[in-house]
């Protein structure tokens, strides 16, 4: 590991001041320290932002949540308010990693964790994301758990976060402090599709600090479900965050976001569109899921994700319809 200078920031302004070329912010370090050990990231300086005064969760009068970026994944999932008001978010966080990792991991770091593509994590291999222009061995190699939607010639990686999938379904907004001041970005636009710049996971610029995530209220039944290769402590093959509002047998509102299928949390807008105003019955859920998955371009070894995603959509909506 390359030696680095460590600084602990006590305010967002100070964090930005301490961030210079070659610096990285440090949250819990559960992804970054691992990547440094693998030689994938080589920061010259770490600016620790895990103790900034944004470690609180606030329930606002309108029912929205303001979650500080330094809140740990554990505290987010254990929070009584979040469990009552946005159960899908608590479920998504609990579906990720392990109890000991969630204690260290922060909300900001979770959003910006990097892909688990095995070539990306192996500094001796070519990889367009790690070393632009070097090629993408995953396309013809080991890709059974990589993308089926929105990938490019340059990169077929998936974004690994469970939490981000729920936040995409919830229409969350990310608060960012950058060199030019504060701004907000819809979470659905934070992560990018790879295109021909797979080295850029997100739209953030160097030095941009995530300070909080804002989540609008949700008062319809919702849930997060994850399919993986073992019962627990594994990344998603496919996951879903869904919410459904049925009135008089008709779909009034629906949200569907998929994880494990693309370079970003995949909001299934086509399926949602097909469902709004439609009868809340299995055939319609099936038709909507198929409309979305018509967009899929599976690779040699991951075509199984297409029926898996479809069935996950149909089953989850059916269950939510029964609660509605």
């Amino acid at each position: 590991m390359r030696p680095f200078v460590y600084e602990r920031a006590t305010s967002a302004d100070e964090a930005l001041r301490l961030h210079e070329d070659g610096a990285f912010y440090l949250g819990g370090g559960t992804n970054l320290v691992d990547l440094m050990r693998l030689g994938v990231e080589e920061p010259a300086r770490l600016v620790d932002v895990s103790r900034l005064p944004n470690g609180e969760i606030e329930l606002r009068p309108d029912g929205s949540l303001l979650i500080g970026a330094a809140v740990s994944n554990s505290d987010l999932a254990a929070d009584r308010t979040v469990r009552e008001s946005h159960p899908m978010l608590a479920q998504a966080v609990l579906a990720g990693a392990s109890g000991q990792i969630r204690n260290l991991a922060t909300v900001g770091g979770n959003l910006l964790q990097r892909t688990r593509c095995s070539y990306f994590q192996d500094a001796d291999k070519p990889c367009n994301k790690r070393n632009p222009g070097s090629g993408c061995p995953a396309r013809e190699g080991e890709h059974h758990n990589l993308a089926i939607l929105g990938h490019s010639e340059a990169c077929v990686a998936t974004h690994p976060s469970d939490m981000a999938v729920a936040l995409a379904a919830l229409d969350a907004t990310v608060h960012v402090q950058g060199r030019d001041g504060e701004r907000t970005t819809p979470l659905r636009e934070l992560h990018r599709l790879p295109g021909n710049e797979p080295q850029r996971d997100t739209v953030l610029d160097p030095g941009d600090l995530i300070t909080a995530v804002e989540v609008p209220p949700l008062d319809i039944p919702s849930r997060y479900r994850k399919v993986r290769e073992r019962a627990s402590f594994a990344f998603a093959l496919v996951s879903i965050a869904a919410a459904l509002d049925v009135e008089g047998g008709t779909v009034r509102d629906v949200r569907i976001a998929l994880g494990g299928v693309a370079h970003k949390p995949w909001r299934a807008l086509r399926a949602e569109e097909a469902l709004r105003g439609a009868p809340a019955i299995g055939e319609e859920f099936q038709r909507a899921a198929e409309a979305e998955l018509d967009l899929a371009e599976p690779l040699r070894d991951n075509a199984y994700k297409v029926p898996l995603a479809r069935n996950l959509i149909v089953r989850t909506l059916t269950e939510l319809g029964e609660q509605s």
Partner: peptide, 27 residues
């Protein structure tokens, strides 16, 4: 494993369990 994957390094850090292999001492 030194990668957070096995839990053999778990300690209680300020009262909470954590993977000591992923935690930088300086942090």
């Amino acid at each position: 494993c030194d990668h957070g994957q096995c839990g053999a390094c778990t300690v209680l850090l300020d009262g909470r369990r954590a993977n000591a292999c992923l935690a930088l001492a300086v942090a």
